[in-house]
């Protein structure tokens, strides 16, 4: 019984991770319509209810930048060098498309859940 509960928890965590993966990309892109460096971006997302750890955020930012969706530059702030990220032109276009897709999926899910 104890094992079965642990399996359920693991299963839920895995499924939650899959569900969050795509949402995090949209959230990060949307939040970076304003310029942020990593720490303030994490704080901003956390304040809005979407916690993301540094081990997930920084590799994601790096990947999105490699894909051309973000631009970044190193600048000094509070006597420390920080890397500031912002949505690129291509990133804005992709974000619009992703938001449309998100709304379509969301509407479909709501209909499916109402039917159920």
């Amino acid at each position: 019984m104890k094992n079965s509960t642990k399996l359920d928890v693991d299963l839920f965590e895995n499924l939650k991770l899959e569900l969050r993966r795509g949402c995090l990309i949209v959230a990060v892109l949307a939040q970076l319509r304003q310029e942020h460096y990593g720490y303030t971006l994490r704080k901003a997302l956390d304040d809005l209810g979407l916690a993301i750890d540094e081990g997930t955020l920084y590799p994601l930012l790096r990947r999105l930048e490699t894909q051309g969706l973000l631009v970044s530059e190193w600048r000094e702030e509070n006597k420390r060098n920080k890397r500031f990220y912002k949505l690129s032109r291509q990133g804005e276009l992709i974000l619009q498309q992703l938001l449309q897709e998100w709304q379509t999926i969301n509407a479909s899910l709501e209909r499916i859940l109402q039917e159920a």
């Binding site: 720490y39 994490r42 540094e54 920084y58 060098n81 890397r83």
Partner: peptide, 17 residues
């Protein structure tokens, strides 16, 4: 190739925390 860049960014995040 990415060591300095990543460590600077990660270090800044941890110091901020």
């Amino acid at each position: 190739k990415q060591q300095d860049d990543i460590i600077a960014e990660l270090g800044d995040d941890l110091r901020s925390q």
